[in-house]
Design a protein around this nucleic acid. Structure first.
Lengths: 218, 218, 218, 218
DNA sequence: CATGAATGAGACTTCATTCAT
DNA sequence: TATGAATGAAGTCTCATTCAT
């Protein structure tokens, strides 16, 4: 998110001379970014297109050159966020085989990103609450690691759906804590450790895996 | 819903009531109940005072004899819900000493009630998302059991806040699953078991405690 | 137009009204009257609720206390106009037996009113163009006279539908002429005479009937 | 619709055309044709330039290379329609001397075309309602036949303007009936017969003339 | 010329809130 | 206190029109 804001700010600055008439194809991205900034900033409530237009420095009508309805805007924002999210996760856990380790990496990545970028955290919280598509995508990512860990004998749970919901809830719950300023040191590790225990790992094994160093981004 | 009416009425009896006061309280309660019915009925979106007035069979203006703003209505609804909630939990785990068992009972009660009364589940989901007061109350209830279990050596976690957030998140997550029709058999037991494991109990101990029969309501 | 207001007010007095209802009815009438004034004033185009609110000196929101949608407003205006229209006609041709004479009176009344009240003419032209209900009502009024005249042997036409459309078209056409300032002296008589001839009366008979004095309004 | 293209192309040939002019004319004609197709297709409501651009497969901006405003587009469409109309009529009644017969042919042609080509009927109805130019042109065509019949002693009416309005109204009224699916067999003949009677012909004479075979188009 | 992104006025509609009765 | 008519800000969406490329 912060990266987005910086790059957008730069763009804004160079374009203020031409009063926004040179945007064309980039405008859609501008709109999505603006929406994410709004989500990031606020505590509750729905995104309005008035706000979006102002944040993106375009007129109301412009939004409708890119989206047919308000719903489409929200959907696009959800997709953008989901895209970033799933990319981040899959890049990081690329070479990892163990389901339990992948799960740990996924959860920690999710939480770490939220700690590093509270704007992103807020946006995710908002979007995940309103957008079913986002929820499914998150669930799909988690489910594969869950099944892998179960096949390998690391995990032990009586119901996959319940386990899935638990992992997702814990991750989102951590995001909420962080967004409310209640983050703690090593939040990612602590959450991952508890999640792994909930999934059946022994305390020692859970602690060991949760404390493994995160793979570096190349 | 009826529980709400009773508890609120009881609170009223602790004051000296004139007839006017009684009627005032009655109408106010009518409004809160109507709001809960609306929350219960719908999937998403905000409560409007139009709806509320119609559901309660009063005119728009009447609402403003009992609440200054829409926000106050929502707050009152949150309080009413929180009231029932904490009563239910504390009644049930009244004679139980063990923190782990109290925790299990609390979580299972929460989930069981959601399964039995999807209207209540929907209302809680709505309110908890918008009302900070409700969230704190839930947290307070959980925290005491958490600390008890920790003191007794049953629980083992590295950070109380993180553990607290985890328990609450899992419970709310279960409510969401149930509200979306994704409930499973023995949902309450499965969730409680995983939560106990997350809090450091061994698999066997977690399973045992989670499967204890719930205390009967007298 | 002023006639409109009077007749509508009379209707109001005949109902049993509570205080609230009276005011409500008054505003509703204000809105309908304002709509008629707007129709009367303009050359073409659709009625907008902005215009209506301004003309009626109420705010936009007030309109929605009386009508659910813009369509309902238009419908109400059409009904109001249709009501006046059919009342006027039936009052005037009350004691007349002959179908041909009733037809003549109806057509002449219609045209005379348009000449006397060009606002009314404009409103009718507008409404009849957009509102199917209005068209049906006019058609129903004409059809009975048409059938009466045919049964009595005065009229002679090969197709009732065609005859009906002809009468209505001629009357509306006359309204258009008048609204455009192309009215002529005895416009009503001239139109009625031609219509009667079209319906099969001899020139002499058509002229005689078309020139009969209109019944007085008591 | 193709008739429109032909007639416009013929008009063009009377000028010396550069390649640029030819292309310009072609695109302009494309736009007018597209507008006619839209009018033909729809029941009610106004033409929007969005629709027009899409139907003509050009971009919004292109329209403004050919017309200054939306009004100009509508005007051009009206002219195109009026052009075809008057050509059709005058070709058909070319060799006919009698005013009454020419009137009958004109009315019947108008109605027959509407029955054969409901797209044309819809377009005419739309345009004639909004475009004064179209109305005048129709009136001019009728007036000459009206005067001829009057001079010849066939017609007998007390006011030319009223008679003119009556004929036009009846023709448009027939179009409306047809567009609403209320057409009847020999609609053209029945309307022509009634119009002729309205203009003073005897029943027998009106019937005879209205039933004359229409001249063939060579 | 053609394009289509951008604009902004203005349409319909909702809804929390006020106030006279 | 109860009512409900009135309000007006704010929201979603449309569309004629402009302008840089």
């Amino acid at each position: 998110m912060s990266t987005t804001q910086v790059s957008e700010s730069e763009v804004m600055f160079t374009e203020q001379l031409t009063r926004g008439h040179k945007k064309k194809a980039k405008t859609r991205q501008t709109l999505v970014d603006a929406a994410l900034r709004i989500y990031a900033r606020r505590g509750g409530g729905e995104l309005t297109l008035n706000e979006l237009a102002e944040e993106a420095n375009v007129s109301h009508g412009t939004i409708y050159n890119y989206f047919q309805t308000r719903e489409e805007v929200l959907e696009a924002v959800g997709l953008a966020l989901a895209d970033q999210f799933s990319q981040s996760i899959s890049v990081l856990s690329a070479g990892v085989e163990s389901g339990a380790e992948r799960m740990s990496i996924g959860v920690r990545m999710f939480v770490c990103r939220a700690m590093a970028d509270s704007a992103w955290a807020n946006a995710v919280i908002h979007v995940i609450h309103y957008d079913e598509g986002m929820r499914s995508l998150v669930a799909a990512n988690v489910r594969s690691d869950l099944q892998a860990g179960f096949r390998e004998g690391s995990f032990e749970y009586s119901d996959e759906e319940v386990a899935l919901a638990l992992v997702v809830s814990c991750a989102i719950g951590a995001l909420n804590s962080i967004a409310e300023g209640l983050g703690v040191v090593d939040h990612d590790i602590k959450i991952a450790e508890m999640v792994l225990k909930a999934l059946g790992l022994s305390s020692n094994e859970a602690r060991r895996i949760a404390h493994l160093p995160l793979p570096k981004i190349i």
